[in-house]
Design a binder for these strands. Structure first.
Lengths: 225, 225
DNA sequence: CGCCGGCGTTCAGGTCGTGTTCAGGCTGAG
DNA sequence: CTCAGCCTGAACACGACCTGAACGCCGGCG
């Protein structure tokens, strides 16, 4: 069984390598996100241990990118903060399990074995909100039974809203996540794209699932409200 | 440390009880969801072990209901299927952790201890005052079961009052916090907005939870007086 | 190499919700 | 009774939001 450990704290990384090798695993180590991503793409690992706080590319991004590229190797994430939303986010971006630091070594091994027993989860995450269904990996969207064609940008906006379903997300938040932290163009672009999503997903079906909250932002309603 | 185990398989439930009591926990057992819900409401447990597949009320529902009612006891869910969406759903409905059956007994204990160490944490991102419930993050408000639509300004006024529930807040204080330190318009605007909140939250429900204290300010009553 | 179509983005004009002001009526304290 | 403080319905103005259209970039294709 071959493992990849992506962890920037050298001491912890080396400890894990030794311990896991003693357990009979073959272990590779990457010290930052970019390296980790590259190695995960190149080699067929049986599981990946992935820290969230990483230089280069952070854990969420590594995970999301791999899933996007169709790499479904089981991933166990290491989250630093306790009681935060990290865990939910970890699972949302396609991780299969998570562990909060500090963790017991025995628990890590137990959960790794469970993950690998489960096999390479060839299970593309599908988000469902009401009768809206979207497969981020395949980049496909259905309203009920009929598939709807979206452009790349429309897709990622919808995905962002879907992951925060029921919540109000501000325009600034949308710009930061769907566009880029440094995007400094016209925020009106969000309105334009929300409009396009409505034209494709709501109007033809007589719905209004994307609602506007003036002064607050937008919200994808849970039910077909 | 007091635990509640909600599990319908008698054999497993008894095994857990014995094992956990041997670890020094005080353990109560419920064999279906309805009982579990009732017991969780009545007693201040330090943590709850909750099976998903249950007669009566299923685990998701038990968890969601408790969270809705403001019970934030740490919950560890037991999911039966592997590699399904159960885990995400579990965390989404407000569970703090999950374990996939079959699980190692040692892992269960380890994770329980971690949960309890974390404390009755999970800050209720939701404010509750009487049967008034508001989720500042999602920007949503409910009176009992019915959601009420508020504008941005109404929302922040209500949030301010809710965070000072039971206390009298002066008009000046409200102006400083909900509007702006330098706001120099007509203070009457506070009266207008209090009136609007009453129209939306009190009047339609035959309540009067926002009371006026002449010469002093306003107060959001704890109970639905 | 140049045409073409799709896509992301910008722009301008129109709509309508929301924040604010105002004036007159109401209420409670002294 | 009187007055200050509070309530409230109506009116207004601003700006957030919507939308159709145009522009430029890029990749595919002849």
């Amino acid at each position: 069984m071959r493992l990849l450990v992506v962890e920037d704290e050298r001491r912890l990384a080396e400890g894990l390598r030794q311990g896991l090798e003693a357990e009979g695993f073959a272990v590779d180590v990457a010290f930052d996100g970019t390296d980790g991503l590259w190695m995960a793409r190149e080699h067929p690992y049986d599981a990946i241990v992935l820290d969230i706080m990483l230089p280069g590319t952070n854990g969420y991004r590594v995970c999301a990118t791999l899933r996007d590229e169709g790499v479904w190797t089981p991933i166990l994430m290491l989250t630093a903060k306790e009681g935060e939303w990290d865990e939910v986010e970890a699972l949302d971006t396609g991780a299969d399990d998570y562990l909060t630091k500090p963790f017991s070594y025995a628990v890590l091994v137990a959960r790794l074995r469970a993950l690998m027993r489960r096999g390479p989860a060839e299970r593309p995450a599908v988000l469902e909100v009401g009768d809206l269904r979207l497969d981020p990996a395949a980049r496909r969207v259905w309203r009920g039974d009929t598939e709807v064609a979206l452009t790349a940008r429309e897709m990622s906006l919808l995905e962002f809203l879907a992951r925060r379903r029921g919540q109000t997300v501000s325009k600034r938040e949308i710009l930061d996540h769907v566009w880029d932290d440094e995007f400094e163009g016209d925020p009106n672009i969000v309105e334009v794209y929300v409009g396009r999503l409505r034209n494709k997903l709501d109007r033809p079906f007589g719905r209004r699932q994307i609602s506007t909250l003036r002064g607050a932002g937008y919200r994808l309603e849970d039910a077909g409200g």
